[in-house]
Amino acid sequence: MAQVRLTTRTVPVTRREILRFAGIGLIAAAAVPLAPGRASATADDVSAIVAERFGGAEPKEGRIDLVLPEIAENGNTVPVSVRIDSPMTTNDYVKSVSIFAEGNPLPEVATFRFTPRSGVAEASTRMRLAGTQNVVAVAQMSDGSVYMAKKEVKVTIGGCGG
């Protein structure tokens, strides 16, 4: 049986956390027009978030293997995997990969942060998709370059409640 510890945080707030919190605030502000009531995000919304987060760096094609089912019967649990071509050394590694769903009410799905210790830049999870739409993966390398990949998933039964 796994051990579960329930604690509330008492450690002092670090600068990094303040910055991260400020970042969440920015994202929240950007997400306001997408709040409940509006049907879905668009490709432009995703482009705007990407441009803001990566300082306008022009995303290149390639290096990202975005693995998704062609058809997802159940939009509540769609497997998604990303694998980025990188040596994963201390000088040359993948810093982060963000996943976006262009047709969800809120386009952000997840951000994965790797370290040189990760060995390979590969991660998998499961996500909700509201309907048939494009899924976008954006990878940021340690040298600041940005790569992007996009793939369509056909969803039989949408998975965003309602």
Partner: peptide, 24 residues
Amino acid sequence: GDEVFSADWHGAISANPYMQFFMT
């Protein structure tokens, strides 16, 4: 004590969240 991997999750992550990744 050294970070290997971390993730930010949003509302679009499925119930009972699963995460698979690697370490050297």
